[in-house]
Computed example of a mutant assay.
Amino acid sequence: MTTSSTAPRDGRLDPMSGVVTGERRRLINLAYRMLGSVAEAEDVVQETYARWYAMSPRQREAVVSPGGWLTKVAGRICLDVLRSARVRRERYVGQWVPEPLPARTEWSAGVVDDSTADPADRITLDESVGMAFLVVLETMTPAERVAFVLHDVFRYPFAEVADIVGRTPAACRQLASSARRRVESSRAPLSPTGRQARVVREFKLAWEARDINALIGLLDADATAVGDGGGLVTARPHPIEGAERIARFFAARARPGRLAIRECAVNGQPGLVAHLDGTVVSVYAFDIANGRIRRIWAVLNPEKLRPWKRDPRP
């Protein structure tokens, strides 16, 4: 991943440089929610800035709202990426899970590039980046996803959304409405964060103890577990369904003394990270409702774990 340039190619001082670079955090937040990938979001922002500075100084000065211009360009690039991503993900080996986000204390400075090490450039962790939310976004068409994220998450009016998506405001309203129904139909009553953390902690302890009955007791009867290895590491090609099957799967893969599991925040919610010989090998996100785990997403693809630190403990 290369760092995007924020300097004009002609070497001249850009009087709007501070305004333009100040949009970076918002653009990354926007692109990550649309794409579910930090690397792809960074690429989108880099390309957006490249197009800004490819214009002549006169053209840049004629832009009434640099922030609006950057958003429009980034949104259109995201739409193109999503369209191509649907084809790429059909060829993806195994299950595809959005890239997990670490908390600030977990972030590996300089792993992606120097700019992402700056706290101002980190992605804001809220409900709209929860793993369950991102997984629902993956079921939408590219146009639905872009319209929904722009309007419902970032509050852009449909007139501006239409200019980005290339459809009428009325059509964009319908797209967002369809997307909203998908989100609402998948949403379960959210457990308080403290209660979620307790469930995740109990799951960790039962996993380490290989206590199958305790694991079953923490899982919803119809729970599913999905692993994303990306073809680079071994992962189940299909979801595991049912509490007992999931419990036996995890219990069989406990490695006392070698696999260190610790609690952490994943996309702003309680999760787990596993270290093998000091290196992060998997990150686990959970969907918890009524005190039971409904879904587990295990990301093992090392390409998606680059932002995570090595185990800081000796």
Rank of each mutant, 00 (worst) to 15 (best):
M1R: 02
M1C: 04
T2S: 15
S4M: 15
S5M: 08
S5F: 04
A7N: 07
D10L: 09
G18D: 15
T21Y: 08
R24V: 12
R24G: 13
R26D: 07
I28F: 06
N29S: 01
L30V: 09
A31G: 01
R33P: 00
L35E: 04
G36Q: 06
S37M: 10
S37V: 06
S37Y: 02
V38C: 08
V38N: 02
A39F: 04
E47M: 15
W52N: 00
A54C: 11
M55I: 03
P57T: 02
R58S: 13
R58H: 13
R58Q: 14
R60N: 03
V64F: 11
T71D: 01
V73Y: 00
V73R: 03
V73T: 03
G75L: 14
G75E: 11
I77V: 15
R83L: 09
S84F: 05
A85P: 07
R86Y: 05
R88C: 04
R89H: 14
R89S: 09
E90T: 15
R91A: 10
Y92Q: 00
G94L: 04
Q95W: 08
P102A: 01
P102S: 02
R104K: 10
T105C: 12
T105L: 08
W107E: 06
G110C: 01
V111W: 11
D113N: 09
A120R: 07
D121I: 14
I123L: 06
T124K: 09
T124L: 12
S128V: 06
G130Q: 09
G130N: 11
A132N: 08
E138V: 05
T139E: 01
T141D: 06
R145T: 10
L150E: 06
R155T: 11
P157G: 10
F158R: 09
A159F: 14
E160C: 10
I164Q: 00
I164G: 02
V165C: 03
R167V: 11
P169I: 02
A171N: 06
A176R: 05
S178H: 06
R180D: 09
R180N: 11
R180F: 12
R181D: 06
R181I: 10
E184K: 13
R187D: 04
R187Q: 08
P192Q: 04
T193V: 15
A197T: 12
V199C: 03
V199P: 01
R201Q: 13
F203V: 06
W207I: 05
R210S: 10
L218I: 09
L219S: 05
L219C: 11
D220W: 05
D222Y: 01
T224G: 07
T224Y: 10
D228R: 06
G231P: 12
L232N: 14
V233I: 03
A235R: 05
P239M: 01
E241M: 11
A243G: 12
A247K: 01
F249W: 08
F249T: 10
F250P: 07
A251W: 02
A252G: 13
P256H: 14
C264H: 14
N267M: 00
G268F: 00
Q269H: 08
G271V: 01
L272M: 04
L272G: 01
V273Q: 11
A274F: 05
L276C: 03
V280W: 02
S282A: 14
Y284A: 08
Y284R: 07
N290C: 11
R294C: 13
R295M: 11
R295T: 14
R295E: 12
I296S: 04
A298I: 15
N301C: 12
P302Q: 07
R306W: 11
P307F: 00
P312E: 00
